[in-house]
Simulated assay, not measured.
Amino acid sequence: MKKIILPGLIVGAVLFILSYGSLYLGIRFFPDLFIDYNNPLFNSEGNRDILFYMHPFVISFALSWFWDRFRGLFQGVFVVRGLEFGSVYALVALLPVMWITFSAMDVTVYMVLSWFLYGFVQAVIAGILFAKLNP
């Protein structure tokens, strides 16, 4: 359990910082993409904001368990292992979720592509960190 919880907390904190840094930069450099978020679909009126802020920790613990269970399948130096880990996660989990999201909700292709890229980058960063913390 220690091999899952401690790396999960560390990676969660790193992803939290990177997530909010990238959100700030994204709004600053790609404002047209973020105008689409002024949609009632994305307004929870503050009732569930804490769930949004917990996301980096939820994903980091899930990915930490996945890493601990399957890390032996990823070979090479830590960067390659992280990239392969992120790719597996993107193909197995993100692609189907983004597909159903795009087909069922009124969101743009650019939004879905940005979510896919964001999730892929998160998983690669998590994989690189897990490869160092829990080789």
Rank of each mutant, 00 (worst) to 15 (best):
R81G: 09
R81W: 03
G119T: 09
P56C: 05
D106M: 07
F130I: 00
L18G: 06
N47Q: 12
T108R: 10
G46E: 02
F85D: 13
R81N: 08
Y37P: 02
L94A: 14
V11A: 10
L133D: 12
G26F: 01
N47I: 14
L133G: 11
F102M: 13
I128Q: 02
M98R: 07
M105A: 07
Y24R: 04
G127C: 08
L23D: 08
E84F: 12
P56A: 00
A90W: 02
V80E: 08
W67Y: 05
I125Y: 01
Y89M: 09
F34C: 09
V11D: 07
L41Q: 14
W67T: 06
P96K: 10
N134D: 14
M98D: 09
V121Y: 02
V88Y: 15
F116Y: 15
S64A: 15
F70L: 10
F42P: 03
P40H: 07
Y110G: 12
E84D: 09
M1L: 09
L33S: 05
W67V: 11
I100Q: 12
M98A: 14
G46L: 10
P135E: 13
L6H: 03
S60A: 15
Y37L: 15
D106Y: 05
V92W: 08
R69L: 11
G119L: 01
Y110K: 11
N134C: 04
E84L: 14
S44T: 11
F102R: 15
S19E: 09
M54A: 15
V109S: 11
A90R: 06
L33G: 06
F78D: 09
F120D: 03
V109P: 04
I27W: 03
P96E: 00
L83H: 07
N47H: 13
E45D: 15
L95T: 07
S103V: 14
G46P: 04
S60V: 07
M54T: 05
K132D: 04
A104Y: 10
F29H: 09
S103I: 10
F52G: 15
D32G: 06
V97R: 00
L83Q: 02
I59W: 00
A62L: 12
M54G: 09
N39V: 00
F42N: 07
I100M: 12
S114L: 05
P31A: 08
L91F: 06
L18A: 12
M54E: 09
V121N: 05
D68V: 04
L33T: 03
F30K: 11
Y89F: 15
V121H: 02
I4G: 00
I10G: 03
A123P: 06
V97Y: 14
M111P: 01
L6Y: 10
F116P: 04
W65S: 06
S114F: 13
N39I: 04
T108K: 10
V121G: 07
K132L: 11
L41R: 13
E84N: 13
T108G: 06
G127A: 03
G86M: 01
Y37I: 01
L63I: 02
Y24T: 07
S22A: 09
